[in-house]
């Protein structure tokens, strides 16, 4: 076989592979994009499986709609672009329903709502979390979140550090690279309860201004997918009605987060 033919064969092989990987999506499968790095809402365990409140809710919704859920893990930064690019059909990843995001995606009704809070290391000399009091301090948050936007806009005199994942922000707070973190109170609570989180503690009040923190976590969909949105809304209402939602809530939290 000549070199040229080898190239031709390689080309055909690649074309075949790409074609083989690509396939038309079936009707009764709903592909769900999630982050898998946001415990307790969605995370990856040491078996490489996606777990968490979001995943359980998604599973319950799919059961209710009588479709098969197919989960796709996607980094948070690219989670909306990948939805728009049709890599999956819905985002169930604790995404807050905000005006900014509603300009490019649609949301279902909320499936839970929790406020945001600051945490700091134990013994830090911080009691007031107003922008003036935190001027000059280093505050971490996950990038592309409501928390990041809030800090960028309101805490302009602080040094804001934005991390691809919440885990990385936590690591840096524990290490002392940053003075505070602003994030979802439940996510922070979960971490503070672990050994690594024992370094740190809540400070200041809870934040839930809808201008920044939106109207709770919803399922994000492409704007043209009205039908899917309605099906999700109906399923959501049904699992709240029949107690499934409460059961999942109780698996994770000692109080209701609706």
């Amino acid at each position: 076989m000549t070199q040229f033919n080898r190239f031709a064969v390689a080309a055909v092989a690649v074309a075949g592979m790409l074609g083989g990987i690509a396939s038309a999506s079936a009707q009764d499968v709903v592909r769900i994009g999630t982050e898998g790095a946001y415990p307790p809402f969605n995370f990856t365990d040491s078996n490489g499986e996606l777990k968490g409140f979001d995943i359980d809710i998604a599973q319950a919704l799919c059961d209710e709609m009588d479709v098969t859920c197919e989960f796709v893990a996607q980094d948070w930064d690219g989670i909306i672009p990948a939805l728009l690019a049709n890599r999956y059909d819905a985002i169930i990843a604790s995404m807050s329903i905000t005006e900014e995001r509603m300009e490019i995606v649609d949301f279902t009704d909320k499936y839970y709502q929790t406020p945001a809070r600051f945490i700091m290391r134990d013994g830090s000399d911080i009691s007031d979390t107003s922008p003036d009091a935190l001027a000059g301090m280093t505050i971490g948050a996950q990038s592309a979140t409501i928390h990041a936007n809030f800090l960028e806009d309101i805490y302009a005199d602080s040094d804001i550090r934005l991390y691809p994942t919440q885990d990385e922000a936590n690591l840096d707070l524990a290490a002392g690279r940053i003075d505070l973190i602003l994030a979802d109170s439940i996510v922070l609570y979960e971490w503070l309860e672990t050994d690594d989180g024992s370094c740190c503690t809540f400070v200041g009040d809870a934040y839930s201004d809808p201008d920044y923190f939106g109207f709770g976590a919803g399922i994000a969909l492409r704007q043209e997918d009205d039908e899917l949105r309605e099906r999700f809304n109906a399923a959501l209402a049904a699992i709240i009605e029949n107690g499934t939602w409460q059961d999942i809530n109780d698996d994770y939290f000692p109080f209701s987060i609706y």
Binding site: L18, I21, A22, S23, A24, S25, V72, N86, R87
Partner: peptide
């Protein structure tokens, strides 16, 4: 119709 390119591809 729709055509899905995997993340891998």
């Amino acid at each position: 119709s729709s055509f899905e390119i995997s993340g891998f591809a």
